[in-house]
Design a protein around this nucleic acid. Sequence first.
DNA 1: TATCTTTTCCGAAACGTTTCGGAACTACTC
DNA 2: GAGTAGTTCCGAAACGTTTCGGAAAAGATA
Lengths: 349, 349
Amino acid sequence: MATLKDIARVLNLSITQVSRALNDHSDVNEETRLRVKDTARAMNYHPNASARKLVSGRSGMVGLVVPQHRKIGQDSIFLEVVAGLSTQFSGRGMQFVLHMMAEHEPALPVYQRLIGKALLDGFVLIDPQDQDPRIDFLRKSGIAFVVHGRCGKIIDYPYFDIENEQLAYDLTTHLASRGHRRIAFLNGLAGRSYVTVREGGYRRAVQDAGVENLPHLHINGEMDEATGLTDTVRLFTGDAPRPTAIVCGNVRLARGVFEALAALGLSVPGDVSVVAHDDELPGLRASAFFPALTVTKSPLRDSWEPLADCLAGAIEGKPLGTLQRLGRYVFIERKSVATVLPSKSASNR
Amino acid sequence: MATLKDIARVLNLSITQVSRALNDHSDVNEETRLRVKDTARAMNYHPNASARKLVSGRSGMVGLVVPQHRKIGQDSIFLEVVAGLSTQFSGRGMQFVLHMMAEHEPALPVYQRLIGKALLDGFVLIDPQDQDPRIDFLRKSGIAFVVHGRCGKIIDYPYFDIENEQLAYDLTTHLASRGHRRIAFLNGLAGRSYVTVREGGYRRAVQDAGVENLPHLHINGEMDEATGLTDTVRLFTGDAPRPTAIVCGNVRLARGVFEALAALGLSVPGDVSVVAHDDELPGLRASAFFPALTVTKSPLRDSWEPLADCLAGAIEGKPLGTLQRLGRYVFIERKSVATVLPSKSASNR
DNA sequence: TATCTTTTCCGAAACGTTTCGGAACTACTC
DNA sequence: GAGTAGTTCCGAAACGTTTCGGAAAAGATA
């Protein structure tokens, strides 16, 4: 591999000057700069990342640490995350390191080790929990990072997030405004920050609508088809007051809900109205549901670019203000919601 | 971060001796070694990977370069590959770099750049093609690599592979031995080395069975359900002589075949016998088919450990003999094959 | 002519590690 | 007591880059 020394020898220049020419420093003759860049290209020179990291502290590498889990082979969201982030960073000439932990390995020591080795410039954090210790840890280590989501009270770190509170509020309120009084919410696994935040939005909407809050209508769980199906069956077979509408945390849950309702002989939206948040998961189109599903839409795919932007910015030391971004979502009304007549909404079954 | 210098200062030793103690060299007092290791742990020292790479040439990082493609969100094999390899390397204290290329970006310059930066110790190559230029390129660059599969005539590089020729031969011969004379083979995309090799095994089996080779019965294509379905429909609706048995390149194709046959009103194995190779893809169990599918089984999941082994060995400079491994497969006979009577096999439709 | 700027260049040090070639010391052999 | 062998240590160089603090040359100003 060609080094600075090789180029310097060929051009009869000092290593210093070659380095400065390649890095566009000011005190190098324009003609020299061109000569240097040309021969660098000709000798297909690439700066040695290790040497550069050693002296400048930058390696151009970022990391993602994720726990291995049994069902990872079917976790299409994980796939989306990895493919998206990798594409983003590769496109910026950065290296993307994927570190999979053993299933229940504690995360902090892993970050500790990786930081110790000093080869990563920063981390992407996904799936933040309500009180996520990783954030504090990384903040204290002084390494750059960006969070996909927000958590905690003091949000003084780079993040990309969508307005989960408002989105849950909008979905729930949409149903309430159509006369629904008992609205179920199939939310994600408790503990995840976006799940908690969405729960807040749902609560606020229920309160604003002046509806009694029935705890059994808010359900936490895995966000897959099977969960959507079983939760729906439970909602409509017990003795508890049954909902007339369901808000689903994502489209996959909604898929399960539709199946369960069909199996129970209930029609959408005739008997039950359904809405969902739509991350645009691969192989599931809300518009192709029957009836087409009313959603708030905010493609997960749009996250990777701002996330990579923010992390790159954080590494370069840009001010925090430019590193905190919110993604947009749109409300798309389709055919899965019906208006409830006052009399019907008062009946119990 | 603690460095060798820090430890040396604390223990009143030279940097040299601390380094040698930590790396278990012979000429350091046993008691010193312990003292060094203890304080290193106490100061939570981790060797700086860049510095190490710079002088020793090893960074402990390996890379996988894959092209981005439209349907990557649903490519569960890709997911399996990434999760499997990452877990393996992370478990060995190595870093796994995932580089996604733009959709039709040429691969060689990407490898060139990555090698130039000199931060990776080696590469994992997946999806080798019949004449894969990457292999020659990496060989010439002198960097370590391991191939998932084999290709070309001179196989003088580390690889992990399964016996694709023999496996296709076994599946086809199994059907021939049950009296089938027209056996279709739904193979993968032409050009991939394992597809070509399997085609060879199929050809050999057909020849050994003394059966006429009907070109229209060997079909190349994507290995998904949709392809299995459409290919089967085509096989059973044209004027060409129809098969009495089908060999599927994987279980997902077989799924599509089963669906198509059901739609066509043909029974398995009464009207058509079906066998497949089983990589144990997530969410698809050959034993849960109805009727249960006869397969050659060789879980993809068993590839990652030997692949990582071979690459690590290649980086350490182990002899080639230990770096070329073959995975086993087992033949599992179930219920999807019937014996054909001579009279029936002679009829045309 | 002497002093000051500006432009263009360079030597040397530094980053943290590994490793080569010895040095110092002890213990043993003849 | 000289030589040999073994054990335990260390200084210095090297890897390839960036950057600090100047230096040399040329032109402008006094």
